[in-house]
């Protein structure tokens, strides 16, 4: 039995220990916001936060998160429904097209902003490695700048 926290709630899993966190979230905990894209940690569609840092859940064995805290896209907004500034910025800049990669993009951006509150375009180009097949990159870039502003305004 592997126990850990997802979005501040205790959860447990008693299946195969090498099961990727991605499939535990999706198939066993019925949390569908985290997406499967490549299975090799390349595209970032499955990005979650592990102890506050972005992580590809498709290549993270569930055994390795025992006792740790996982945040998924479902846990990013406040309990009262107030969106995280990055989520709000994504709406403000009308980022999504098909929308499939955006949960991963948002969680990568939150991680980036937590380490670098005012990233420039070069920082974003280096750090934002998630794939978007629709090509929403221009608006992702704008939204990260906007989120940076929103977060600095909020102090």
């Amino acid at each position: 039995m592997i126990e850990f926290h997802v979005n501040d709630k205790p959860v447990s899993f008693d299946g195969a220990e090498d099961t990727p966190l991605l499939w535990v979230l999706r198939d066993h905990l019925a949390m569908k916001g985290t997406k499967f894209g490549c299975g090799i940690g390349s595209c970032g569609a499955c990005t979650v936060h592990l102890e506050g840092r972005a992580r590809n859940s498709c290549t993270t064995k569930v055994a390795s998160v025992a006792g740790k805290r996982v945040t998924t896209i479902e846990g990013l907004a406040s309990a009262d429904g107030t969106l995280h500034p990055v989520q709000q910025a994504w709406i403000d800049e009308d980022v999504p097209q098909c929308g499939y990669c955006q949960a991963g993009q948002i969680l990568s951006a939150v991680d980036l902003l937590s380490r670098n509150p005012v990233p420039d375009d070069g920082d974003i180009a280096r750090e934002m490695t998630n794939l978007c097949r629709c090509g929403t990159y221009v608006r992702i870039r704008k939204a990260i700048h906007r989120a940076s502003e929103l977060m600095s305004e909020a102090g």
Binding site: K35, I73, L76, L83, W90, I91, D94, P96, G99
Partner: peptide, 15 residues
């Protein structure tokens, strides 16, 4: 703006 934007950014949109 995209009508499902809030559902998408909160992980609620269903594919």
């Amino acid at each position: 703006k995209v009508v499902d934007a809030r559902e998408i950014v909160t992980g609620q949109a269903r594919f």
